[in-house]
Design a protein around this nucleic acid. Sequence first.
DNA 1: GACATATTGCAAATCATTTGTAATAATAAA
DNA 2: TTTATTATTACAAATGATTTGCAATATGTC
Lengths: 126, 126
Amino acid sequence: MTKIGIRYTKPRKLVFEALAHYSKPVSVAEINYYLKNKIDLSSIYRTLELMKKSNIAEETEFGDGKKRYELISEKGHHHHLICENCGDIEDIKMKEDELLNKVKTKSKFAIKKHKLEFFGLCPNCQ
Amino acid sequence: MTKIGIRYTKPRKLVFEALAHYSKPVSVAEINYYLKNKIDLSSIYRTLELMKKSNIAEETEFGDGKKRYELISEKGHHHHLICENCGDIEDIKMKEDELLNKVKTKSKFAIKKHKLEFFGLCPNCQ
DNA sequence: GACATATTGCAAATCATTTGTAATAATAAA
DNA sequence: TTTATTATTACAAATGATTTGCAATATGTC
Ligand SMILES: [Mn+2]
Ligand SMILES: [Mn+2]
Ligand SMILES: [Zn+2]
Ligand SMILES: [Zn+2]
């Protein structure tokens, strides 16, 4: 009987470290820049995929064609405000029960998750 | 003094027709399939960009790496439920004043727009 | 109809992401 | 601690979506 296990490797340490450092959703390019080519891009991609499946990191999209990832931290489920001018990101946490209940009332879908992002201008850019 | 004007051309007619036909967010590949190579892919892209800027079409992303577009119709502002199994899309319309007010209370961002999509399983796929 | 120029098709480029594979490193077994 | 097993990596190449440069063309104007 063979053992299966997920190994604690250099790329995994480093990607985790990068995500922890930023504590906001970051693109693969940003992670790579932070890690200064210490690991290959494909390893970053594969590691993020793993972290997503393992519920360690969450994937978001802001509409610029790049996926972004952030650690699922103590913060818990939350959304973001993105500045369309400087790209600054602010977390937004809110009660969503009413929202979700409304949707469940209107539809027969079994809802598993949702994505909600706000776009506009941060205080500095207004 | 030179005249400027947006011309009513074959690609624009056809892309509009394709969007109207589907009346749900569709990818460029789907539009192209519908139009059976009557126009070039690059023309579809350029036309959609134009329609987006002109507030004729809206862009959405469901997380599969393809942008999707739908006409801004009488329906008005709304969101979607996407079936993670069969890809079926349902529109969802709801009052969002409270939601937006909450966010405006919590943040100093000047909010211009937001994206909200729900993912789960449609009645058929449950 | 002729002109001015906005727009197209085509080909090539770009950008993010994925994939195949031989070499390597993490862990288990001896 | 050495050896064996196999999960994981780096690298290179492939893929897929989107963008771009440009000469040819079509549209609206005079
Ligand atoms: Mn966040
Ligand atoms: Mn819709
Ligand atoms: Zn800003
Ligand atoms: Zn379904």
